[in-house]
Design a protein around this nucleic acid. Structure first.
Lengths: 190, 190, 190, 190
DNA sequence: TATGAATGAGTCTTCATTCAT
DNA sequence: GATGAATGAAGACTCATTCAT
């Protein structure tokens, strides 16, 4: 028997992400993905049950890649501020070095798909964020607000900022980034 | 010759927004829209050049409705804070009372369509926001940052917060809203 | 609006019957039917929900044509024998003049489709047969057996006989037919 | 080199017959057969040239099983009536105990496949039937008709009767069978 | 204006079959 | 012998769009 060709699997993954970002959901067809990945359309069905399954698995894979990057070097021995800064810088790195992954996620998250997939708490994958904010609240560094609120006022603005930059084709320089981190910190500090 | 039947136009508009929100971009077809709107698919082509034109016009119409609501009672005679609060409360009203419109916009804005449509200029529609922030900066009420940054740290978090609520089926109560407005203000105040 | 083109409907019907008889169930595809009928495959879906619906409607139409032919001139004023003979001769006429219809029915009836369609009592369409046999039993002309048994020993052999002839490309001559009718009668007479 | 695995061959055979009966010709694919037989689709191609060859061999195998059963204990030393009755009872046994085989054959025989396969000659397999009828005619027990006619009025009705029973899920009890045998005999006796 | 009819091109998916191991 | 991987061709069906009325 032939062996599973991981190159093909990867090529399908890449093609999916690229096309969704280039031409959008509704114009991305299995046959276009297959062509871009240089495989037969039928081959896609060896690795994915159907189109939606392909999207879902692609989504999960990217989410995994993202959380992996996001928490590099983030651990309990660090102070709250160190963790806060590291997470944001990692996140920024991820977004800028993996633009396609980031935009793919944004597109998915703003479509009706998550509800269909009953996505609530892949939150568990983002545990370190919660722990960091939790520690910050307990140490009275952050405002005594729901963690979601802290996220929405500190991390999310960064993502939105970068999204705008990505769409303009510009990058955040280090001064702008320092300034944004400061704004994020100030927005939620007690 | 008969006249433009605004009922039909409106029914098509409604059906489009609903379907895009319910089943997403790629599954929303002209014939499904027609069925939902109780018109013939051919009728849609009387009012719209093609599918993309339908989407684009729908987008513009919603954007118009939104800016109209957002700036109700917001004028230069008011203080910066009054305008700030009014805009946010109007925005929250819009999102909560026109959930479908809001989610439609989010979906569009996170797809590759805006780039295809070369959207930036509609910014003009949101002039009052810029004016308010501009006044705030000049009066040294707000931080001396790019206006986009101020938006991203004050208005956008509100939208994200509500998005999370919409997906849970919950509403923001007035206490939560007051608290969020305060956070937004603090995040950008000088 | 364009008017319904009954020629197309008929062409689809004909093509379906022909192809099923020529190349069989599993090789008859919608696109082959469309090609044979000189319409677009999509057109078939205007008149039929799906492939199975096409087969079902075709089946019903043929069954209707058959019962119509079968009972021409068969009524209660006739004697049992007259009705018996007329029905058989009509049936033979139908089979020989509408070979394709007959073979189509045979193919359907011997597939798992009827069970899927819950075909029990299109029997109502064949009421005159039951009435004739019923009268024959009451007048003690026929054996006192279940009507299905009478059918199976008198009418069905005729069909099988003709099927064999059809497959050989021969026809039943009038002498053979007379003889067969006699055999049928003898097989069930009291 | 390994040897032919009769388990697999048999499993493929069984799966083929079952599926054709359950879902019909056109829905029975090689991969479904493989799944049902718990083998790889590729394995089927070790034992069968292609799909049609699989069907043909399956057909032949069943036909063999049937004729084997049908003529158990039927030999020239028996009287015509004994042979007649034995053949019918054997046939009934076969149909009732091997429902799937019987229905498979019916489905094949009513499709265009036999013509494609140029089937007539397998008649040789059913020699004992011809001999029995031939002896019956010579001994002036049966009507002086073509043997096909005798078959069609005596054996075929039994098959049709059982087919109806199979489809209702009922069985022929021994009284009904006795009665049917008598009808068959009467239908063709001189 | 309004729409059912019509269709070529496209959709997703499965097919029968072959290949490499 | 056995099978997972691979695929081109084909399957059923839907699409966006146009046409005739």
């Amino acid at each position: 028997m032939r062996y599973r060709d991981d190159n093909k699997v990867e090529a399908i993954f890449d093609a999916t992400v690229q096309l969704i970002n280039e031409i959008g959901f509704s114009d991305t067809s299995i046959s276009k993905i297959a062509k871009r990945a240089s495989v037969s359309a039928a081959t896609i069905y060896i690795y994915h049950e159907n189109k939606e399954d392909l999207l879902y698995k692609t989504y999960l894979k990217i989410k995994g890649k993202m959380s992996e990057k996001m928490f590099q070097g983030v651990d309990h021995t660090r102070t709250v501020y160190e963790r806060f800064e590291a997470i944001i810088r990692n996140y920024v790195d991820f977004i800028q070095s993996s633009k396609d992954y980031f935009l793919f996620l944004e597109q998915i998250m703003n479509s009706p798909l998550p509800q269909k997939w009953c996505l609530e708490d892949t939150a568990s994958q983002f545990q370190p964020i919660f722990e960091m904010f939790d520690a910050g609240i307990r140490q009275e560094i952050f405002k005594k607000e729901d963690i979601n609120i802290l996220v929405v006022y500190s991390i999310l603005p960064i993502a939105e900022l970068l999204k705008a930059h990505l769409k303009n084709g510009t990058m955040l320089n280090s001064k702008q980034l320092d300034s944004a981190i400061k704004m994020s910190w100030d927005a939620i500090k007690a």
